[in-house]
Design a protein around this nucleic acid. Sequence first.
DNA 1: GTCTATACTGAGATAGAC
DNA 2: GTCTATCTCAGTATAGAC
Lengths: 208, 208
Amino acid sequence: MIETKQKILDTAEQLFGEQGYGATSLRQIIAAAGVNLAAIHYHFGSKEELLDQIILRKAEPVNRERLEMLERFEAEAGGGPVAVEKILEAFLTPAIARVAVNPGFSKLSGRLLGEGLMPAIVEKHFRHVAIRFTGALARALPELSPVELEWRGFFVIGTMAHTMCSKPQTNASLEGMEAWKVLRRLVAFLSGGLRAPATETSGTEVNR
Amino acid sequence: MIETKQKILDTAEQLFGEQGYGATSLRQIIAAAGVNLAAIHYHFGSKEELLDQIILRKAEPVNRERLEMLERFEAEAGGGPVAVEKILEAFLTPAIARVAVNPGFSKLSGRLLGEGLMPAIVEKHFRHVAIRFTGALARALPELSPVELEWRGFFVIGTMAHTMCSKPQTNASLEGMEAWKVLRRLVAFLSGGLRAPATETSGTEVNR
DNA sequence: GTCTATACTGAGATAGAC
DNA sequence: GTCTATCTCAGTATAGAC
């Protein structure tokens, strides 16, 4: 039955989100899903492939929304550059919105960049989006060199990942309305960072 | 022998750094160190406790340097607030410097915030430093509310962690002289973010 | 094509002899 | 303090039932 595959996907997604990828065993998943152990390897081949399918299922709509939002802002800008804040909003909102609704989503997606592994998975599912947004940022911040821009985009990813998979000690999670405050804080912080004066004098980059 | 304990510590630190914590087995460690499997459990109790000891050994001098640098800057400021850039420099330099010398250090320390994340370990070893630096930031940025400040400090940690455990695709690592360029970029980006105008306008959380 | 039962290898942990 | 032997549980692989 294809129902089996869906049940594995749903259950694994939930457990990975709650406990993390490494801490969740396949036997836990099959017990909760009520399926056989070998069914996982029949449908997915390996634990890592299972994770890959889950990521894909989650990332695809997020990335689509991101691109749609960015394109809408670009249309509104009518050929001119889109403001940094808008670009960040387009990039962050679809992800944060899901975290707000489903907390399990946060750990799962946030950990992708942290759990050490699967840089290949991240690369595969998010690379084209990153390229698209870096291009928009380059137009918004023409004074930054490509190298500088790449690093700043990298910093943005790091902040987002950390925000999605952890939280400040004292404060509540990203759930519910809190998420929108966090989004505002993120956009403010990151746009401040992106707009900071470049550190390099173009060309040599050695003197400060 | 005490030598056994040291040998385990050194070997495990190297292997954790090279392959990550989860991907390194105790049997790998004992083979490389030339000791018995049970010796690890005798001296450390568990794999996680072993990691904890390694972290402690590494984190202690880093944190001491951080506090020393901060205190030096505070003395130079003569009672007044220390500039945001200086605070960031004091916080980031000791860690980045070690990454520059020992790349294995990066994966190990950077992953603490991402991998299966022993929040207890991080909490234990870095909490007092975080409090100290947050205090300095509060004096440097008096216009920010405590909540806003906490979030921004959280964003700083995220950016640093991501930078220490990953790297932009095209670019080289943090090794050697590259590290100082990265440090400059980090300070520029993060100070821009920290200095951004506060986002709080509505009264829902300002009064607390 | 799907799924079940079962076996295989290697992981971390532990008890007890020395 | 150290080591051997052993336990449990992980991910994986395969043979065969429907």
